[in-house]
Design a protein around this nucleic acid. Sequence first.
RNA 1: GGGGAGGUUCCCGAGUGGCCAAAGGGGACAGACUGUAAAUCUGUUGGCUCAGCCUUCGCAGGUUCGAAUCCUGCUCUCCCCA
Length: 406
Amino acid sequence: MQTHKQASDFSLEEHLAAFERGCVDLVDKKDLSKLLESRLAKGQGLRVKFGMDPSSADLHIGHSIPLLKLRDLQALGHTIVLIVGDSTAMVGDPTGRSKLRPVLTREEVDENLRTYVEQAALILDMERVEVRRNSEWFDSLNFEGLLKLCTRMTVAQMIERDTFQTRMEAGEPIGINEFLYPLMQGWDSVEVKADVELGGTDQLFNLLVGRRLQGQEEQRPQVVFTTPLINGLDGRKMSKSYGNAVGLKDDARTMTFAIMRLDDTAMPVWFTQLTRVPDSEMATLLAGHPREAKARLAFEVTAGYHGEEAAREAAQAFDREVRDKQLPDDIATTEWQDDWGDALPLPNLLSQMGLVQSTSDGRRMIQQGAVRFDGEVQSDARATCARPAERLLVQVGKKRVGYLAG
RNA sequence: GGGGAGGUUCCCGAGUGGCCAAAGGGGACAGACUGUAAAUCUGUUGGCUCAGCCUUCGCAGGUUCGAAUCCUGCUCUCCCCA
C-alpha cells in the first residue's frame, strides 16, 4: 500500500510555487497564501474544484494541461473535486453560430464520464479524486430555486463577458440558457465548498461567478486560477474538429509525429504546460536548435503516456521515415480484386486502395505529380495499371503509401 | 405583434435570369524550398464511364427554353420598434 504525502509535509513556498507555475490568472495570490497558511497549520490540504463537460469525451493534450496541474496539486496532498456537469450539459449549450447541441441522455453522460475518467486516469490518480455530478443538487432544485439563482446576477453583469460581447457585435445568436451556465457552474462551487477552482483561461468569467455566489452564501470565496489554452498544430485553437489536435489516446507514433510538426513559436508554452522539464534545462533546450528542442518535447509528452521505450521508438521512426525519407514499417497491402479485370485506370486504382478520396481526387493527384509507383512518378491520369506480377509500391504525396499485390 | 436584413460549396464571403461547379480569402492537399516546421513561390480543392455528363447555393413547390439569382409557402438567424 502506497502512502501519500500530506499537504503539511510541504512548505508554503512549495505549495505556492506549484499553483503559480504556468498559471495565467490567479485571483488572488494573497487569498491563496492566507488560505494555505491556515489550512497547513491544521494539517489540511485544499479542496480544488475542476469541472468537466460530459458532452464530449475525446480528450486532447490541451485538456491535459489542467489535469497535469491537478496532478501536481494532488501530489502535494490537496483534494481534487471533479465536477461532472451533467445537469449543465442537459441544458443544451448552443455554441456560436452552430446548431443547438443535442440534449444528452443519462446514458450518454454515463458513457462519456466513463471514457473521461479512463483518459484522466492516464494523468491523475482517480482513486483519490472526489467525483461529483451536479445533477446531485440541480435535480432537486425546483423552479423557485432556479428563479432565486437567477436573481444573483444582472443582465449587465452577464453580458460583460467578452464572448457574449463578441457574439452580439458579430450578430450571432445567444441563447437565454447560456446565461444559466455561469450561474450553475458557480453554484457548484457553493455545493462542494470549493477552496480553489481551476479552469482554462476561457473559464475565468465562470470561475469568478463561483466566488461571487460563495460570498453571498457566506462561504470563503474560492481562489480562482487558470491555465492557458494551447493552440493546435497549425496555430489555431486546438480542437478535434479542426484536425489539429493531439489526442490523449493517440499511439506513441501518432503523438510523436504530430508534435514534430508543431510550429516552433508554440514550443515554450508547450514545454511549460505539457512537460515538467526543469526551467533551467528548458531554457537551454529552447536556446539550442529548434529541432532538438522539439524532439525532446515530443519525447517528454509521448513518454508521459506510453513510456520511454515507446517514445524512443517513435522518435527513431520519425527520423527514419520523415528525416531520412524511408518507408514506414507497416504498409497496408491491397490485393488485386478479380472484378477489376486485367487492368484498372490509375485514378480508380488509387481510390480503390483508399489512398485518395475519390477517383476525381486521384486524377488530380496524378496531374500534380504526386503519385509514384515503385518510386516512379505517374503523370498520365488516363493510363491504366495492369495486375502486377510482383508487389507494387504505390505512393501519393509524402504521407500516403500502400502496396498493391497481384 | 410591426418593420427591415439575411441563410451560397469544409469555413468566411462575392454572386440578382444564361459567360456559374459558382469571384476572393482561410483551411486542406500537392509540387519546389527546408531543420521536422514556419515563411515564400506554384498548382489543386463536388462526383463520374471526364474535351462530355450528373449533383450542389436553407426546405418545398411554381414561372421560364434556361434559376443560386424571379414568384409562393414554410423554416431558421440577426437588427430596429412595441
